[in-house]
Nucleic acid binder design. Structure first.
Lengths: 293, 293
DNA sequence: TGCGCGTGATAGGAAACGCCTATGGAGGTT
DNA sequence: AACCTCCATAGGCGTTTCCTATCACGCGCA
């Protein structure tokens, strides 16, 4: 069981093809076939089902893949840990962020971070909380910026600040001129909310519930910008992060704060406790804290 | 960074010598020097300090060692997981047990287990709780039998039963004839207890505290058999596991249960959540449950 | 001070290994 | 039925790893 064999196995499994995997890892296809065969011989069991049009892992292959990915992640950690030991803040940093935070927080943050740490190559992954957490576990991202997270023993999740939620209404809406909107003024409004996989959706219903408001959900959107455009078109109102509102310049809709206790949601940093935290990751975390706090 | 290089590095670090490490891993010493050098060249930093009489890891080496051990543990897991997939209950199983349980629980258990699963080679490590937990984390043991454990997110600890604690007194002691000993009868007795690293020591003081007894600790012993001999010699009394008493045939001391609510301590199984649990390990766990429950 | 002893590094050759190109063969597709 | 895609096999080449033999260094002992 050699490192390159595990690399090849993972590549074939992910590409579902020997030829594509060979291209990806930069060797000729026969070399790859050879090494996989050798691995299968050593372990005494087929790892891949060569089906006519695609390649799928056998049960044993699936089993080995889990271990293989952890081995490779650990090796990557080793390299980064040693590079860190030389005092450099450098290398590649992959951060994840949820779609309801990423477009409002990251652009500015990335620009500043790039200036402060020009040696660090930052990659961004935008996905919903559940998937980001999976990616943390699989070491596919180093760090995630998200809101609520139900936990899991291997993920560290740390609150770094909070953001206000505000009401987004069409510019011609009766509430558009209010200084601050009272919750009871929203009875009967049509609400535009995100799909349930977005945590903002749950957070909004929670807030509504606390305010004894049973909103009529007119539509579930896949992204905030869709919802914003719907609001502009007068199809309903929505509760959105204030950060989004700050950047919104469309005159067809306006954002209004809520009266009384303003609803907020947490902004958290999460990382895996099993992976090495590079200096670059810590520096990025600090940048997020400064920007949010 | 190849697997065999990591194996060599770990061997050299543990043997503190190239030659001994070479012998251990079964290659000639020059091959080992060569591979370590290659690893150092690849990583761009020395990993080992070749001192006149011994070899010690550098800071970078120490750092890499942690990752290397995890990589190797993960590879071992992979092999065992695949072997398990073929349905065999076989291979090597390393179990740890604390010294106040091991000699009373294991002999009988191991004998039965060997009959039920002749294909499994069981190795036993006897050490105190804290060290067993470390060894679980480092994948040096598969399973630990212990009593209390303060936790840690990567260790699963499961109560499988309890054992009674009883009073051990010299045969000629005034309490030796009691049917059951009341706690208030122990005021003024000289107590022989274990060193603090043994959890039994803490458990006994906890029980005493609950019974409003402030025992005079006459001596702290390193093992129960020492304490038992001290009791035989009339140097004091002790609170010991009933399991120990069951096997004790020395006529110079007797064990008496406590009156009222009999004190007990838990017996737990612990394993690492990060390591693969073999069928052999699960079978052993089951054997412990049957024996204890 | 000089000599052995233990230990790691170096040198050179043999065996093993991985990768490559060329080719074969099985399954679909047109 | 011919073609195409995709993986397996064969044979050659360059590299790597391992071995044995030997060297270099520091230490302890006479």
């Amino acid at each position: 069981m050699e490192v390159h064999q595990l690399v090849y196995l993972v590549a074939v499994a992910e590409e579902a093809s020997f030829s594509r995997a060979a291209e990806r890892v930069g060797v000729a296809q026969p070399s790859l076939s050879q090494q996989i065969k050798k691995l299968e011989d050593e372990l005494g069991t087929p790892l891949l089902d060569r089906l006519p049009r695609r390649v799928v892992p056998t049960a044993a292959g699936e089993r080995l893949l889990g271990h293989a990915r952890r081995v490779l992640a650990e090796l990557a950690d080793a390299r980064r840990s040693l590079a860190d030991g030389r005092g450099e803040i450098a290398g590649t940093l992959t951060v994840g962020a949820i779609p309801t935070i990423a477009p409002y927080l990251l652009p500015d943050l990335l620009k500043r971070f790039a200036v402060a740490h020009p040696q660090v190559q930052v990659e961004v992954v935008e996905d919903v909380t559940a998937r980001l957490v999976e990616m943390l576990d699989r070491a596919e991202i180093d760090l995630a910026v998200l809101s609520t997270h139900d936990g899991g023993p291997t993920i560290h999740c740390e609150r770094v600040g909070e953001e206000e939620l505000a009401l987004l209404v069409p510019a011609l809406h009766r509430l558009a001129k209010s200084k601050a909107v009272r919750w009871d003024a929203l009875a009967g409004e049509r609400f535009l909310v995100l799909q349930e996989m977005h945590c903002l959706s749950g957070q909004v219903s929670e807030v509504c519930q606390r305010q004894k408001l049973r909103p009529a959900v007119a539509m579930r959107g896949a992204q905030l910008s869709t919802i914003a455009e719907m609001v502009s078109a007068g199809l309903g109102v929505s509760v959105v992060p204030a950060m989004m509102a700050d950047r919104d310049t469309n005159p067809d809709r306006v954002t209004r704060p809520f009266a009384g206790e303003r609803p907020t949601r947490e902004i958290c940093l999460a990382w895996s406790l099993l992976r090495y935290r590079t200096r670059a990751a810590k520096a990025f975390e600090q940048a997020v804290r400064e920007r949010v706090g």
